[in-house]
Design a protein around this nucleic acid. Structure first.
Lengths: 203, 203
DNA sequence: GTCTATATACCGATAGAC
DNA sequence: GTCTATCGGTATATAGAC
């Protein structure tokens, strides 16, 4: 069955190329960002030819979608490792801190992807509404927890969707802007935002 | 003095062209964003030739700097209209709300410029550190108020610079993402963020 | 599937006439 | 100062050989 074997070999090689492209893209996105990374940068870093890229991805955006899958998998894995019922009480310091810590560490450990997604989102036509859609989508779980709190009769500062988006904005933009190895440790950031969001400035 | 008169006329025409370019750019930045607006888009919208652009600005970035001046003037004007000593007490609801309301309304009234600045910041090389520099710079006043609070022995959630940047991130990214005429009114946003930042989720 | 080579398109920026 | 015309550089995507 030489034919079957050849097909298998070809498949493996293709998978290797695809993986090499994803890996190179991830490194470059982290170094110079998504917008400043050209398709030819990715292929040459991966040791492949330009034309090969389009055998695996329609364009740079589609490659980013594949990387996004990795990010979501990582987040799901982290969330699965802890209890996360809908009735999490975000007014409990430990529970709020855990949420923020998970979100923050996922963003930091996959900073290249987060940077790329952020740049891709902001580069889009602002009138398209994509930014708001992305933000509310990514903070959906937070919103559910807040809605649960509201159903318990607890007073909230505002609409759950808006509060969740605001919290997400704080984390995401701070993570984007704060240089790795910068002046603040991960613990400092998570603790500061936990206390700010838990009790506010007057707490 | 025909010569002097000619020079005066030329000066006026030049100022008109410059103003037309700035005006067209502002409109286009609001409609399709900074990154998707080309220099030729600006000149044709202003009814001028491509070459004229470079008589007034070295490039698109320099034009944006000129627009930034307008934004800062607007912010200074708004701040001058109210009392704003360094010892503002941000743990007082009315004072915190006023700060947030001014920041929010300036961003919304000059949304085109804010969008452009945001896109310009995010499009830069993430490793350049510009994003963090911009954010700490734009929240410098907030940081000073927080430092004053700390000197009074009031407990803060974390380092003033970090807290100020986090608050600024929440406002800036929410303003960027939230579509004009969207689901939330300006009052709703300001009230929600005021209460969230003042007393937090547990307040 | 991967490669080399290239078509295509676009944009920033400038030269030179008026 | 403003215009028309254009050069030069660059990025995307494809064609065709292997």
């Amino acid at each position: 069955m030489a034919r079957g074997k050849d097909e298998g070999v070809r498949k493996v090689k293709a998978a290797q190329t695809r993986a090499a492209l994803l890996d190179a893209a991830r490194t470059l996105f982290g170094e110079r960002g998504y917008l400043n990374t050209k398709v030819t940068d990715i292929t040459s870093a991966a040791g492949r030819a330009t034309g090969s890229f389009y055998e695996h991805f329609a364009d740079k955006q589609e490659l980013l979608q594949a990387l996004l899958g990795d990010l979501e998998d990582a987040a799901d894995e982290r969330l699965a490792a802890v209890e996360h019922p809908k009735d999490h009480d975000l007014t409990d310091r430990a529970q709020l801190r855990e949420h923020l810590a998970i979100a923050w560490s996922v963003m930091r450990e996959h900073r290249a992807i987060q940077v790329a997604l952020f740049q891709s989102m902001v580069a889009d036509d602002p009138a398209s509404g994509r930014a708001w859609r992305d933000m509310t989508g990514q903070t959906g779980m937070l919103r559910e927890h807040l809605e649960w709190l509201r159903e318990q009769g607890r007073p909230l500062p505002g609409e759950p969707e808006l509060i969740a988006a605001g919290m997400g904005a704080m984390l995401a933009l701070t993570s984007y802007a704060l240089p790795p190895g910068g002046p603040y440790s991960d613990e400092q950031v998570v603790d500061a935002f936990t206390d700010l969001l838990l009790k506010g400035l007057a707490g």
